[in-house]
Amino acid sequence: MTTICESADEAVAGVTDGATVLVGGFGTAGQPVELIDALLRNGATDLTIVSNNAGNGSHGLAALLAAGRVRRIVCSFPRQKDSYVFDELYRSGRIELEVVPQGNLAERLRAAGAGIGAFYCPTGVGTPLAEGKETRTIDGRDYVLEFPIHGDVALIKARQADALGNLVYRKTARNFGPVMATAAKLTVAQVLSVTEPGSLDPEVVVTPGIFVDRVVACPSPAVLAEEGAGA
């Protein structure tokens, strides 16, 4: 059953030190800023964060990093124009980094959510990111063995939920949300609004409520834009 929470703090309650936290978003699009802020207040530390990027500017994920709560980050593209918080931590040796090709990040999360033990993948063959990994030739093509990424918690952002936790998203803010929702023991979604069962067309539900444990309405989320990108 999905629980509809009264606050973001209630929604992230119980996240413990050392947890692996999957954080949705591509840059700032789809980043669950209110849930991350609540996680900051929650106080959990020594976290492993799995997210496409390593924070933008000084808010959201970057604030969690700046507060020293993150021991290790698993992401595809840490370095951005406005990733100065991460850059400083990394260069001073205060955060561990695992760089994962973006498709492997998505597929390793998908595998975790789908009960797949591991999979062979052509991405990265012959590159430094495949060093030390098992490889296999299948039908004449080389593949690298990749393992799932399981989360203790997933924090994601969607546009709308119904009271059963069915989710729809908004434009490219969807990104990692649907795969992360499947890959964690506890999936928490922040949404603009929570509506009655039956209010969402079942044909357009993207994440069925079975994958969603807690929902909280954040009707006016922070709008973060990457600093220096576009308009």
């Binding site: 595809s76 593209f77 840490p78 370095r79 951005q80 260069r91 760089v99 090709p101 991405t123």
Partner: peptide, 16 residues
Amino acid sequence: PGAIPAVGGAMDLAIG
């Protein structure tokens, strides 16, 4: 030295 590695989707595009 000091360069922060960031691969994004490049390896997936290259082979795909």
